[in-house]
């Protein structure tokens, strides 16, 4: 069965209001630009978005926030987006802030079929409110639950027609775990090649986790903070 689709619009056409979507990326690095633009055009609302960050004003996830397509956001850091901060402080958007490592592990665990696990992060803080705590070897831990989503949007550097993915540098970030945790995972790639062309030793995400794949286009790859040395 072919996993190949033509473009992002085709990838998102069955998404319904209220669905949950995981979006890979860290800041603007490694975000699925084509899929974000497509869901923006598609117009689905009341979405539950799971992403480490919330984009910036008017780009990345920020586009969906500006158009009020997001009902709930699950993230670890949303500091680069003023409109988001405004919606959050005014209560217009529901927000679940999760420690970054816990977020990554909840997603990985969800994709790996692990319903819950214990971590030390957040013990003694407001993150622990309402959660089961337990002592192991004299140290306190919180129980956190694995997480899956209706869709996962991931972005890779290279991919093949079997759905195998390879990331470049730090553009992997949340993409790899999210690819595992989507009931339907859609991958957009900078370079799509026929199966057999990628070195199997270098694959980050085996194609079993990817249901649809397409060649992305017009990548902007915006930089949040360009820092250079003279």
């Amino acid at each position: 069965m072919s996993k190949l689709i033509n473009n992002a619009a085709e990838a998102v056409k069955d998404i319904k209001d209220g669905m949950s979507i995981m979006l890979g990326g860290f800041g603007l690095c490694g975000i699925p630009e084509n899929l974000i633009n497509a869901i923006y055009d598609h117009g689905a609302k009341d979405l539950i978005c799971i992403s480490n960050n919330a984009g910036i004003d008017g780009f990345g996830l920020g586009k969906l926030l500006n158009k009020r397509q997001v009902k709930k956001m699950i993230a670890s850091y949303v500091g680069e987006n003023k409109e988001f901060e405004r919606q959050m402080l005014s209560g217009e958007i529901e927000v679940d802030l999760v420690p970054q490592g816990t977020l990554a592990e909840r997603i990985r665990a969800g994709g790996a079929g692990i319903p819950a696990f214990y971590v030390p992060a957040g013990y003694g803080t407001e993150v622990a409110e309402g959660k089961e705590t337990r002592s192991f070897n004299g140290k306190m831990y919180l129980m956190e639950e694995g997480m899956t989503a209706d869709y996962a949007f991931v972005k890779a550097w290279k991919g093949d027609t079997k759905g195998n993915l390879i990331f470049k540098h730090t553009a992997n970030n949340f993409n790899q775990a999210m690819a595992m945790a989507g009931k339907i995972t859609i991958a957009e790639v900078e370079e799509l090649v026929p199966a057999g062309e990628l070195d199997p030793n270098q694959i980050h995400v085996p194609g079993i986790f990817v249901q649809k794949i397409f060649q992305g286009k017009d990548y902007e790859k915006r930089i949040e903070f360009e820092t250079i040395s003279e």
Binding site: S76, L97, T102, V119, A121
Partner: peptide
């Protein structure tokens, strides 16, 4: 209210 990022994971571990 920007979020804790990785700080809680780092200090806990």
């Amino acid at each position: 209210v920007k979020g804790m990022g990785g700080a809680m994971d780092l200090v806990a571990a």
